[in-house]
């Protein structure tokens, strides 16, 4: 038996041995309102880490959407403007144009990005606003009780597609992120996930690249995070991750869709 095996926990749990700390930009004074296992919390954490690591805390402004993430402003300790449903990219446009030295990001759900805010999202990206658009796609409307989103999969049951989404009735899943690379204003478009430690690490690297693009004024960066809504999907968080990997990744495959920083 060596020294290490006999080490007491108190000897390990010391400040100098800490290798993963809760991000300081994440406000610990409030509990996040998200359901247990919700992907939003992980995305919040990653954004908090990226902002702190880039040293842009004092000139970053977030725009929160309508939807479950409406309260993002309670959790990430930067300035926040809460936008009307779908209008986050328009709000962010002004925030950045009027304060060009600031870093502005939107945090949008699938309703915000691909339904009511399609026009604002497409046009902000087409103008090449120097902002980061974080798009959390969980294929359902969580906050209002699990109704169909434009990104809901064919056959997926929701409160408004109780027998499963049908193409003839509801159209096709809208892969809005696939449209973004076609717009000359975008510099970086990627689709990631946070369901495993490796996926979360990857997403953090992508978010960092996106925020660096905003700092360097390279244009619009879109980071889609394919996510779960285990409450809306009526599954355990664990099962939701499995279901996502099995079904959602087929329609929304992970990976970079555009990266002009590589081409240069």
């Amino acid at each position: 038996m060596n020294l290490c095996d006999t080490m007491e926990l108190e000897e390990i749990i010391r400040e100098e041995n800490k290798v993963y700390a809760v991000p300081e930009l994440l406000d610990q004074s409030v509990h996040m309102h998200y359901c247990p296992g919700c992907s939003h919390g992980v995305v919040h954490k990653l954004i908090s880490e990226v902002i702190a690591e880039l040293g842009i805390t004092d000139h970053t402004v977030g725009v929160s959407p309508v939807g479950c993430a409406v309260f993002a402003y309670n959790y990430i300790d930067v300035d926040w403007v809460e936008a009307a449903h779908g209008r986050a990219p328009a709000v962010a446009t002004a925030l950045n144009r009027l304060w060009p030295e600031n870093v502005v990001f939107t945090y949008q759900g699938d309703g915000d990005m691909s339904a009511i805010g399609t026009a604002e999202s497409i046009h902000a990206a087409n103008r090449g606003e120097n902002i980061v658009m974080v798009f959390v796609n969980n294929a359902i409307y969580g906050m209002t009780g699990g109704q169909m989103a434009p990104t809901t999969l064919i056959g997926q049951k929701t409160a408004t597609t109780p027998y499963g989404r049908r193409v003839d009735l509801n159209g096709h899943p809208l892969e809005i992120t696939n449209l973004m690379p076609l717009l000359d204003g975008t510099c970086y478009v990627t689709r990631q996930s946070v369901h495993t430690p490796a996926a979360a690490r990857k997403t953090k690297a992508c978010l960092k690249k996106a925020f660096e693009n905003a700092i360097a004024k390279r244009g619009t960066s879109v980071v889609e995070v394919v996510a779960t809504c285990n409450s809306g999907w009526k599954m355990s968080p664990e099962k939701a991750n499995e279901w996502m990997a099995e079904h959602m990744f087929k329609v929304y495959p992970l990976g970079d869709l555009k990266d002009t920083t590589k081409e240069q």
Binding site: V81, A84, R87, V91, E120
Partner: peptide, 13 residues
């Protein structure tokens, strides 16, 4: 719609 929300964002700043 976008214009008034740009005004909202600008005013908020």
């Amino acid at each position: 719609v976008a214009a008034i929300n740009m005004v909202y964002g600008g005013a908020a700043s």
